[in-house]
């Protein structure tokens, strides 16, 4: 029975890894590719490690596998965030059919800070995103 369950987990994990590869191949810009690689790839690796933890039936192996899953889940968003920010600032082109670029014009000239809505206005709630066009000034 355990064989059966871990076989299913392996199949699912490999399918997610394959989907991540297809996404990396087909999607049109860096951000969408990163979306495929980060989420589907991490899920695939996590499922395969989970299958390993189930199949081994030893506490130490299972503990290491679960530690690996947790490590992947903690680090993947950080890496993707840093990479997305760096890619955006270095001017990687967005897909031509992108509708909104909410970050456009919001970085200051040297690219270190966001100069969107100042924090005190956000706290007052006057320039909230719910406004029709956001930028009222």
């Amino acid at each position: 029975m355990i064989d059966f369950i871990s076989g299913i987990f392996i199949l699912l994990g490999a399918a997610f890894a394959l989907i991540a590869g297809i996404g990396l191949f087909r999607l049109p810009d860096v951000y969408l590719r990163m979306h495929a690689a980060t989420k589907a790839g991490t899920l695939g690796a996590g499922l395969v490690l989970l299958a390993l933890a189930l199949d081994a039936q030893q506490l130490q192996v299972a503990a290491r596998a679960i530690a690996g899953i947790l490590f992947l889940l903690f680090t993947a968003p950080i890496a993707a965030h840093l990479l997305g920010r760096a890619g955006y600032l270095s001017g990687s082109p967005l897909w031509t059919k992108t509708r909104f670029d909410e970050l456009s014009e919001k970085y200051d000239a040297d690219g270190r800070r966001l100069n969107g809505t100042p924090p005190e206005e956000l706290r007052r709630g006057s320039a909230h995103r719910g406004d029709k066009d956001g930028a009222s000034e």
């Binding site: 991540a20 860096v30 690689a37 990479l83």
Partner: peptide, 11 residues
């Protein structure tokens, strides 16, 4: 772009 290649290395 370089970012694409880094995403691919991560993958």
């Amino acid at each position: 772009t370089l970012a694409d290649r880094v995403v691919s290395l991560d993958m």
